[in-house]
C-alpha cells in the first residue's frame, strides 16, 4: 500500500509536469451561490418555516402542537434525548410512552425520536445535526418521525453561513425534509431508510 501511495503520487507528478501553467483558483464570493431575494431582510424563522414546508417537512414552535401532531399520527411510543426531556415532559400526556434510553435491539418499537439539532438553514429548510448535539445517531434516524429541537438563534441564512459554522465536529448532517427515493419509475416515496416525517421544533433557549 505504501508502494501504491508512491506510485500514484509519482504518476500525478508525471501527469502534471508537462503543463506550462496550472489553472489558477478562481476568486469569488460565496454570495453568488445564495438565493438572495428569498432571504433579503426577512425573518429567518419565517423563511425557514416556509422552506421546510416545500420539502415536506414541518416547523413548529409550540411543544403542545408537537404533542398534538404525534398523537394525531398515532405515534405514541418514542425516544427523547434525556437532556430535553425535563422541558418537554410536561406537554406529553399519559397516553405516551417515552424512553430516554435507546435500545438498538428494539429499533422498530420507536415511532418517534426527539433529539437536539445544532441549528437550521433558512434558505433550504434544512435541519443541522451534529455529533456534539445528537444524543444517539440511531434515534435521530431510525424512528418514522424525527423531531429536531432547534435553538431559535441558531438559524443560519444560507449554505455558505452554515458551512462556515461547521466547526471541528466530526459528523455534521444537514437534513432537508424526510428521507426519500424516486428510484421506482421516478415516483417520489418518502420514508426510505430514514424518517418519513421530519419535524423541527424551534424553541428559545433549546
Amino acid at each position: 500500500m505504501t508502494d501504491d501511495r508512491e506510485s500514484i503520487l509519482s504518476r500525478v507528478r508525471g501527469a502534471l509536469a508537462p503543463l506550462d501553467e496550472r489553472a489558477a483558483m478562481p476568486e469569488y464570493t460565496t454570495e453568488i451561490a445564495v438565493m438572495r431575494q428569498m432571504i433579503a431582510g426577512r425573518d429567518l424563522l419565517t423563511v425557514f418555516t416556509e422552506r421546510i414546508r416545500l420539502v415536506n417537512g414541518v416547523a413548529l414552535t409550540d411543544p403542545a402542537a408537537l404533542v398534538e401532531k404525534l398523537r394525531a399520527g398515532g405515534w405514541t411510543h418514542g425516544y427523547c434525548d434525556p437532556a430535553l426531556w425535563p422541558r418537554l415532559a410536561p406537554h406529553f400526556g399519559a397516553d405516551f410512552k417515552v424512553e430516554i434510553e435507546f435500545d438498538r435491539a428494539r429499533v422498530d418499537d420507536y415511532a418517534f425520536g426527539i433529539t437536539r439539532a445544532a441549528g437550521a438553514i433558512a434558505e433550504t429548510g434544512t435541519i443541522i445535526l451534529n455529533e456534539a448535539t445528537t444524543s444517539r445517531r440511531l434515534a435521530a434516524l431510525t424512528p418514522w418521525v424525527h423531531v429536531a429541537v432547534v435553538e431559535r438563534a441558531r438559524i443560519f441564512a444560507d449554505l455558505p453561513q452554515a458551512v462556515a459554522a461547521l466547526g471541528p465536529d466530526s459528523n455534521v448532517i444537514w437534513c432537508t425534509g424526510p428521507s426519500k427515493t424516486a428510484d421506482v419509475e421516478g415516483i417520489l416515496i418518502e420514508g426510505v431508510h430514514g424518517p418519513g416525517i421530519q419535524i423541527a421544533l424551534v424553541m428559545q433557549g433549546a
Binding site: Y28, T30, I32, A33, V55, T124, T126, E131, A132, R137, D158, L159, P160, A162, V163, L166, D169, S170, N171, V172, I173, W174, C175, T176, G177, P178, S179, K180, A182, G194
Partner: peptide, 29 residues
Amino acid sequence: LALLLNLLGRSGTAQELTVYTEFISGPKS
C-alpha cells in the same frame, strides 16, 4: 463546498439540496 453542493442537487435530481448532506471528518466522538 457550499457552491458545489448548490449545483450538485439541482443538476442531479432537481433538488435545491439533496435530503442528506453529511460532512464526515473522522470516527465517532
